[in-house]
Simulated assay, not measured.
Amino acid sequence: DLMLYDPKGSSSGSTVSCDQPFCAATYGGKLPGCTASLPCEYSVMYGDGSTTTGYFVSDSLQYNQVSGDGQTRYGNGSVTFGCGAQQGGDLGNTNQALDGIIGFGQSNTSMLSQLAAAGKVKKIFSHCLDTITGGGIFAIGEVVQPKMKSTPLIPNMPHYNVKLKSIDVGGTALQLPSHIFETGEKKGTIIDSGTTLTYLPELVYKEVMAKIFAKHQDMTFRSIQDFLCFQYHERYTLVFNTESSYN
């Protein structure tokens, strides 16, 4: 069963009206026909065609804060977020429906940005996936230990864009035209924690598959749902090399 957020069930939650500063900041000014009694509404469409519409609410976010030596302490902060009234596409499908989507974008209205602006955390988050048993760790704020390798983001972009330098398949760099890595309108390399698949331009995809099947010509495809898949039991490494630094 889904555990959807219910503003009526929260003693600290409140609806954001369209005349409040948050709504004006989100839409670049006061909305036409806005009165104090009307909620600040939103509508979002994601890359896979899923949609969510609803209204903004403010409530207290509770979380565990690492205090050192593997210990945690209670933390909380007031944040404004979208309360979904209607979901479409995969978000509304019973097989892939979600309790909700947490916003960690670069804009000042994202949940992370609000917590950082209030001095609760540093404006950093880390997403570490466990590829063996599934799941993983999602950390808000700076991770001091272990020392982590970071990739700088390209500034003033609507998504988390990074500069891709090359692609290695099994230790061999693909020979690709330099323009394939350029960042611009509707092109570039995006890191998206909400996307489980790696999407590649057709040229890059063909080169990757050619490298794999050149060494493993006995592998065959089979269809699983909408995808063509192949089974592989050995270790094979696909590396995306970016501009990196240590923090």
Rank of each mutant, 00 (worst) to 15 (best):
Y74P: 03
G134H: 04
H127D: 03
V208I: 11
Q71D: 04
F240H: 09
S11W: 13
S17C: 08
S37T: 14
M157D: 08
D69K: 08
G88T: 00
N76I: 12
G89L: 04
P21K: 12
M45N: 13
Q217T: 11
A210Y: 05
G88M: 04
A116T: 02
F221S: 08
R73Q: 07
E185D: 08
F221G: 01
G119I: 03
P201R: 08
T196H: 04
Y199G: 06
Q114C: 05
G134A: 06
Y42I: 07
G49W: 01
S110C: 02
A214D: 06
I132N: 15
C40M: 11
N247V: 15
K147S: 12
G54S: 07
P177V: 01
K165N: 14
T109F: 13
I137Y: 12
N161F: 15
Q225L: 13
F81E: 07
I224Q: 09
A139K: 07
K211E: 14
M148H: 11
N161R: 13
T151P: 06
N241R: 14
F230I: 03
T172K: 03
K123A: 10
L176S: 08
G103T: 07
M209Q: 14
N247Y: 11
K30D: 10
D19A: 07
M3F: 09
G188K: 13
G188A: 14
T242H: 10
G28Q: 14
S113K: 02
L176P: 11
A116C: 00
T26Q: 14
D19L: 11
D6N: 13
Q225H: 13
I167D: 00
A210G: 02
V121D: 01
E243F: 05
T172R: 00
P7W: 08
G47Q: 10
S10G: 02
L2W: 05
E234T: 12
Q145T: 15
T198W: 10
S10R: 12
G77D: 01
D69P: 07
Q225N: 13
V204D: 05
K122M: 10
K211A: 13
G171D: 00
Q231S: 14
A24H: 14
N247F: 15
F56L: 11
G75V: 06
L61I: 14
D1Y: 15
S107W: 05
F125A: 05
L197Q: 09
I190S: 01
S126R: 01
C128T: 04
